[in-house]
């Protein structure tokens, strides 16, 4: 579904990604872990070209999206993204947050989009907030809304960048539950997280990134029980 070859990314003279090759298949739940500053976010943001790769190729559904001639906006419709800081549109109600893109991009009529949005809000237990503004919600509620805002576009893959890192501990569970539900439905997911429990339980494969490289890549059982790379051992001893 997504294939990455020789991906490099520099910010000025800083080499953040130093050559990444990876392939993500439909239905997989890839969990990315690694120390802060290792390039996890940058890797994720390259997948939907929020960051422009310095070198390398990315294919999405067999289309080379790093090709300069590709229009990226239509591609991004199929790739949902959830951010650490939610990034709900502050000037719009929750309902409008969900319907803005499908309506403005003429994928659905206003009525279709609103019906769909209400279904999604009910699914995360927030239908009563449809006419509230983001500032009136808790962090956990905001993140659940952010997830269904992406789902309103019927994406083929969902990218999560530390979706629970900005939340108070008691609110983490409600967001992870939504993500688990999504995983069970068969959504293809790439999740950057520090929640090792989630990685173990939901991940089909776990990646360890350090200093711009993927140092280890295994199914979760092996990843946690039999880490190979010394850097991974060191990392796991700190976080577990």
């Amino acid at each position: 579904m997504i294939r990455v070859e020789g991906l490099k990314k520099n910010f000025g003279s800083l080499e953040v990604l130093k050559g990444i090759d990876y392939e993500i298949h439909p239905g997989e739940k890839i969990v990315v872990v690694g120390p802060s500053g290792s390039g996890k976010s940058t890797f994720l943001r390259c997948l939907n070209l929020l960051e422009t790769p310095t070198e390398g190729s990315i294919w999405f559904d067999n289309v080379l999206i790093t090709d300069k001639r590709i229009k990226i906006d239509p591609v991004r419709r199929h790739m949902g993204m959830v951010f650490q800081h939610f990034n709900l549109f502050n000037n719009l109600t929750i309902l409008k947050n969900l319907t803005l893109a499908p309506v403005k991009l003429k994928l659905q009529t206003k009525q279709e989009a609103e019906e769909n949005a209400m279904r999604l809000l009910e699914r995360v237990g927030l239908a009563d907030k449809a006419h509230a503004y983001p500032s009136q919600l808790s962090g956990g509620q905001k993140q659940r809304i952010a997830i269904v805002r992406s789902l309103a576009m019927n994406p083929k893959v969902m990218l999560f960048d530390e979706p629970t890192s900005a939340l108070d501990p008691e609110l983490v569970g409600e967001v992870l539950d939504v993500m688990k539900g999504l995983a069970e439905e068969g959504m293809t997911m790439v999740v950057v997280t520090h929640e090792m429990g989630f990685a173990r339980e939901v991940g089909t494969r776990v990646l360890f990134m350090d200093e711009g490289r993927i140092l280890e890549e295994k199914p979760p059982r092996e990843f946690f029980e039999n880490p190979g790379h010394p850097r991974l051992k060191e990392f796991l001893s700190k976080v577990l």
Binding site: N48, D73, R76, F83, R149
Partner: peptide, 9 residues
């Protein structure tokens, strides 16, 4: 970024 990630120009 949220707007762009949804495919808005």
């Amino acid at each position: 970024e949220a707007g762009r990630s949804l495919g808005l120009s």
